[in-house]
């Protein structure tokens, strides 16, 4: 296996089969199918034999499953957590994007961030 093949990008550019998602999340295939029924997981492709998901769901799903174990929660709660975790991630992405577009002087004081680029005057 090449080095590149060993690295999987856990975002929308890659997909995972239900078998692989079961392996990486620790949930059984029937539990994953139950999450699909709840609407918490949406397959990007559904064939007669398998379900295929965006690899973007791997990290929040693993997080939700870890919380399930940590607090002894039921599967329905995993679905709820997955919704919220994905929403938090989307919002964090939006905040980062808006912060990047704000000029430096508009950033709050004491912010650990980049300095502006200054050309010498005239």
């Amino acid at each position: 296996m090449t080095a590149a093949a060993q690295v999987a990008w856990l975002d929308a550019r890659e997909t995972v089969t239900v078998t692989e998602l079961s392996r990486v999340s620790g949930l059984t295939q029937s539990e994953l199918e139950e999450l699909v029924e709840y609407g918490a997981l949406a397959p990007v492709q559904r064939t007669q034999t398998t379900l295929v998901f965006s690899a973007a769901c791997v990290a929040p799903l693993r997080h939700a499953v870890r919380l399930r174990t940590d607090y002894d929660l039921d599967l329905f709660m995993v679905g709820m957590l997955l919704d919220y975790l994905q929403r938090i991630e989307d919002l964090e992405k939006q905040v980062r994007s808006l912060k990047a577009q704000l000029p430096k002087h508009a950033h709050p004081p004491h912010h650990e961030g980049p300095e502006p680029w200054h050309e010498p005057h005239g």
């Binding site: 000029p103 502006p116 050309e119």
Partner: peptide
């Protein structure tokens, strides 16, 4: 890591460009 000049937004980068009024 924070960069002294650029602020990343996904694969885009932003930076502040100071201009003199005449520029």
């Amino acid at each position: 890591a924070p960069h002294p000049v650029f602020r990343p937004d996904n694969h885009d980068l932003h930076f502040d460009l100071a201009l003199a009024p005449w520029e």
